[in-house]
Structure formats: C-alpha cells, structure tokens
Design a protein around this nucleic acid. Structure first.
Lengths: 338, 338
DNA sequence: TTGAAAGCGCTAACAC
DNA sequence: GTGTTAGCGCTTTCAA
C-alpha cells in the first residue's frame, strides 16, 4: 500500500542505498541526486517503515516514560520537561500510565526486553530498587526520577526528601506546634520512608519525643488522607498540625476537617508536598513543598540520551535538586505555646 | 546480546517455526513439544523482538493517543478509559502530549505513516476535519474524541456541545441573568464554535438580542480567561454572568475577580465546562458541565479496535453521550430582575 | 505435527 | 558518488 524505499529509488532512477543516504546522512551524495530523490520522496509521500528501520539499526529513537499516575500533575509536569528536551534530540517520547499498579510498571518494562524502546524513564516510587537494578544489569537503559538507586548504570534525579521534610517541621515548630501528625504515603515507597525520616530527625533535633500514634498511612491519595484523618480523630489524641507526605492526602485532611468542623489553620495547621495546582486554589491555600519538576525531567533525559550514545558524562549520574517550602495560609498562624 | 528465536529453538531441539507456533497460536503443537519450548523460553528469558515481529506481521498492536495537553485532567481521565479497555484486548497504549500545538499533533501523526502505531486516537480540537479526513482516506486508522467528523472511516465520540450550552444558558437565565458574557476558547476549535452556537440559540429562544461585545476569546487556558476578563472589565459594559467555554478559563475569571474585588456569585455568576477537579475545590465551587470521560475513552477504543480487526460494528460509527450540568456555588444565586 | 525457507523494508559494508 | 547485496529476527506458507 505505502511506498517503499525501492519505489522511491525506481522513481528517482537511483538505488535504494542512495535514497537511504539522502534520508539519513545527507552527505556523500551529489546535490543533483539529492534533489531527484527528494522529489520522488515527496511525490510518493514516502515514510520509512519504522519496524524495518528499527530492526536493521537495532534501535528505535523511542524513549518510554512510565508514570505512576498521569492524573497527578506532578508527573505530567515532569513529563513535559522530558518530552521537550528529548524532542530536540530527535527522540520520541511515549508516556505510559501505571495507574499506581506495580504490575503495570512491570508490564510496561517489557518494552525494553522486546526493544520497543531504547530506554525507559521511571517516575514511580513503588518497584523495588533491586528489581530495577537487575534490569540495568542485563544491559537495559533505565533512569529514575524522584528516587535514588545505588547502581552505576542508573541515572537518578530527586530532591532531598529528608532535607525538605525537616524544613517543613522547622516551620511548624516555629509556629509553636508540638503535637504534629505525620501522614505517610504507602510505606513501601521510598518517598514515604525518607519524609518520615526527616520528620523524626526534626523531632530529635528539637528534643521532642516521638509518639508513634501521631503517624498514620494515607497511601498518597485523597481518600487515603481522609481515612487516616478520621482514624486520628477517633483516637482522641490532641494534635495541632498535620504534615502530609503529599498534597493529595492534605486534600483528604481538608475534607475530614470540613466534616468535623475543624477550622484550618487556627485549629489545625496543614502542610503538604508537591505544590499540586489545587493547593494554590483551595481555601485556605495549602502550604507545600515545590520541586522543579519540569527541570528535573529535562535534566534527566539529557543525561539519559547522552548515556545511550557517547556517554560523555559517565561520571555524573546522580542529580540532587533543591526544593522550596511555600508557606501559604494553611499553616501561617502562630499558636500560643502551651 | 538477547536471546533470539533461533537460540530458543536450538535449546529446545526444535525449529524456529515451532517456537513461533508455541508463542503465538498455541494450537497445532504437541503438548510435549510445547513444554520443551516453554522451558527454553524461560531459561533464556526470551522476548520476541518487536521490530522483527512488526515488520513481518505488518502490525504492532500499538495504539497512540494524541492528547491536547496532559496537564489537563479532562484528557488524562479519558486516556484511562482508553488504556484499560485496550489493555484487555492486548493492545498497548502510548500517550503523546501535543502541548496545545497543532504542529506537534502533525508530528505525532507520522507514527501512522511510519507504522509505529496501528491506529491513533486524537483528543484534540485543533486540527481541521479535512486534514484528519485525508489521513483516513489514505487508509490510516484514526478515531477522534470530543468532536464529530463527517467521514465514514473515522469513529467519533462526543457530547452535544450545543445542547449543554443551552442548558447552561437556561440555568443562568432562570437565575435572572440577562447580560451574560460568553468566554470562548480559540475560535478555530470546534468546541468553541458549537458552544457559542448554543449560547446564541438560547438567547434567541428567549428573545434576548445578541450583543457581540459580550463575547471574548480566552484560548481555553487560565491566563487566556484572565486576560479576556480584564478586557471585558475595561469595556465598562455591565454584565452579571460569565459562561466560560471551559473551567480553565473560568479559573482565570476567578483571578480577575479577585484582583478587582468582584464577588462571586453575588456580583457575578460564573459557569465553566469540563468538571475539572479544581472546580470542586475552589471557593466558591464552580458550576460546570460534566462529561463521562472515562466511558468515552473506553467506548471509542472498543469500536476502534473492532474497526481495525473484524469490523463487525461498521454501521455504528458516531457516539453521542450525555453530559450533566453541575450547579454549584458560583452560580446558585437569584438576582433581582432589572 | 514439524521443518525449510522466503521475505517483511530497511541500512551498511563492500565493491566499483 | 553510487550500486549490489547480505542480513537484522521474526512469521508463514509450503512441503514432508
């Protein structure tokens, strides 16, 4: 149905090899020949068959991005950074939505085994380090965003969870809070672990005893945050602030507060993480931690493409970027010390 | 590096053809042979090379989705419907972000010409009907969501823009509004055109003269909505309600109102379209039109896959689904009639 | 039920 | 500067 290279060659009166040269290298061909070929290409509306090309060259110029959940703007913002940088380097980016399911991540990773993609960037905190490391051991190109993996072949970019977690805590402590809840994501996620670590360190630094009953899991989504908040209220332990490991869960906290008539920020301070778009619009506006998402995507894909080709920057594998605490209305309130 | 079919064949003591049979048809092979082959496949961790397979079979089992902007949950919600339905039918879905740029849509459409994808679903209102129709004429599989194209080969699913637009207007009129602004998207988009049509028809039905100065373009995004609202305020024409062609622009209206001290809904009623997640959380909550996004994605991909295979449902090409007006705080207020 | 072999459309090594 | 040709890894006739 479609024109093939041999048709173009016939029409231009040259060999297939010459057509290929014109289309790919552009050098080593006489200008006149080039023109003939290009004219034939246009007339036949020729597009090289990707499968044949990929098979022959053993590469695809495709990069896959496996995102934990494309409904969450945290991921889509990063993806835009990836997409634009990759595009400039002639790579195509294909986005895959894992919908929070590790099995789907694994399913999409088969794109590497069957060579549909030259490499895959994972923005997902669920699959264990070892599993990803094994893939890299087998020679597949993998990069990760938002986590750190100890493996010489895996580029990583992330913000220092422990660091910003402590910042959040210092802010809440400065407002006079002492009974601070930590609302965790699902415990398997590295983000959860590290943010909890920051929470604990901040308590320790300030000589405040850790009380395990102030920590709840909320699975990184809104209903999880709501349910966790309900459980906390049930427990009847007093607390004056909630540090949620992401904004989604903080939204759940807002819902629970609305239900129980708890007023934010004067009865309860709330801080989230991610700077979701909603966090700015909701009332009261939600204090949160902002990460340079677009930039993170752009940096890692640049490194990744380099690795898949010249590998000039072999020595630079791990990128830590700064985040920023945005203090908004949900926590901007000094309580009286007890 | 990776094992190929010939390696598996050698290890199992059979021919490549037999390995292929086992992996693909599963019938016409003796159980014992099957087992031998499967064992070899596992031991070698064999994954068929997609490029070779695609080249030979002249198909990829890949479906591309070109979304106008993946930062907008309207699109990602639809995509989830597509993804899950396609996955159940052994198709892989790859998402492409056009970032509101028609050139990018065209760029991604080359996935069809080079046979990277068996078909492409477009969720984008920008590219003209004719352009998409021409592709279909050439034999490429294309489906569209959120618009209607008069072409026998292009499956469409959409909600009736004119209809819900009139509903919105009837609601505003019932609240006593007479000077109602219509905030349009970019004029090229079909959605813009049809929603405007609904606005006009509602005016006519109610014998209210159309005043062109009450219509502004906002390009479907927040800043566009903000700027349009600024222009309207500059004009010093009185109006008591804004019907924005989507929620993003309505958010821009909120920003402009905040800046100018205009209170919603008592000084100005606002209604959007899309039921963006933010619309529920913002204060006052935004009245809007909800579409069954997930279902729309699922329905169209099911039809699309059928079309690419048996084409059993050839006669059923156009799907119109119902939308729902959600009246929330931003417009739930009766003004005194003047 | 299984194997041999052609060929999908392209690129790259080699020859001229 | 250009042409010839082998071969990328797979599936699918056709023959046995």
């Amino acid at each position: 149905m479609d024109a093939k290279i041999i048709d173009v060659a016939a029409k231009a009166g040259v060999s297939p090899a010459t057509v290929s040269r014109v289309l790919n290298q552009a050098s080593g061909v006489r200008a006149k020949t080039r023109d003939k070929v290009m004219r034939a290409v246009d007339e036949l509306n020729y597009h090289p068959n990707a499968a044949a090309k990929n098979l022959r060259q053993q590469k695809t110029m495709n990069i896959g991005v496996i995102a934990q959940d494309i409904n969450n703007a945290y991921f889509t913002e990063i993806i835009k950074g990836i997409e634009n940088m990759a595009y400039a380097q002639k790579y195509r980016v294909f986005i895959c939505d894992a919908e929070n399911q590790p099995e789907k991540e694994r399913e999409y990773l088969t794109m590497l085994m069957d060579r549909t993609m030259d490499g895959v960037i994972m923005i997902t905190p669920q699959l264990p380090d070892e599993e990803i490391g094994e893939m890299a051991d087998k020679g597949y190109y993998i990069a990760v965003i938002g986590r750190h993996i100890e493996h010489a072949k895996i580029p990583c970019i992330y913000t220092d969870n422990v660091k910003f977690s402590r910042q959040v805590m210092e802010h809440l402590l400065a407002c006079g809070h002492r009974d601070i809840v930590f609302l965790n994501g699902y415990p398997e996620a590295i983000d959860s672990y590290e943010r909890l670590e920051g929470y604990l360190k901040a308590l320790k630094d300030n000589h405040i005893p850790f009380r395990p009953e102030l920590v709840e899991n909320g699975n990184f989504n809104e209903t999880g945050g709501f349910d966790a908040m309900e459980r906390l209220i049930q427990k009847q332990i007093p607390f004056t602030a909630v540090f949620a490991a992401n904004d989604e869960m903080a939204l759940g906290v807002y819902q629970a507060c609305a239900k129980h008539g708890i007023s934010i920020p004067d009865q309860l301070a709330v801080v989230g993480v991610d700077n979701n778009r909603i966090s700015k619009y909701i009332t009261p506006s939600l204090s949160t931690v902002n990460q340079p998402k677009y930039t993170m995507g752009a940096i890692i894909v640049e490194k990744f493409i380099d690795q898949m080709n010249d590998n000039q920057f072999e020595d630079k594998r791990v990128f830590v970027v700064d985040s920023e605490l945005l203090i908004r209305d949900s926590s901007n309130y000094n309580i009286k010390k007890s």
